[in-house]
Amino acid sequence: MTFVPDFGDDDSDRKICFIASKGTLDMVYPSLIMANAALGEGIETHIFFTFWGMDIVTKKHMDDLQFTWLGNTAMHPPGGSKIHMPQGLAGLPGMTAMATKMMKKQIADLDVPEVPEMVQMIADAGGHLWACKMSVDMMGLTKDDMIPEVEDIISATDFIELSEGAQVIFT
């Protein structure tokens, strides 16, 4: 007999919507990586960028997202150390830049792209990108401040409508 893998082409009504609400380097990757994976599985995928997540698609900021371990007690030095990085240290001048540089290197070592390339990959794979109207108004942004792959600026109600029947994941 012939074995043919089930690529699930017939059951194509699965839909996933991510809400990306954070703009720190460590917190933007979860939605981007999962959205990219979902697209690779042929799933209709949307990302709604809101509040600090707006930086992910704002031209001025998307290549300059930062990481701090201030307020994050799960931060240990690389290599499986039991040590907790002292919170006070994170607040010293220059520490955010240093921590950002280290995290970017770790991400690059895994051959995972930086944020702008990741967003472009998602758009190229057919992902839908939306900006939150309230955030845009609050931050004084216009559509020109964002990359052209952002399809539109939409309200909370619009998002609730478009996510009908979808699995919604807040990050």
Partner: peptide
């Protein structure tokens, strides 16, 4: 896919056209 695109030289968009849904 990213490596096929960056190293293999076939853009992501095209990969999705050639091998629809689950390239």
């Amino acid at each position: 896919l990213r490596r096929v695109s960056n190293v293999g030289g076939v853009p992501t968009k095209q990969l999705f056209q050639l091998f629809p849904k689950k390239p």
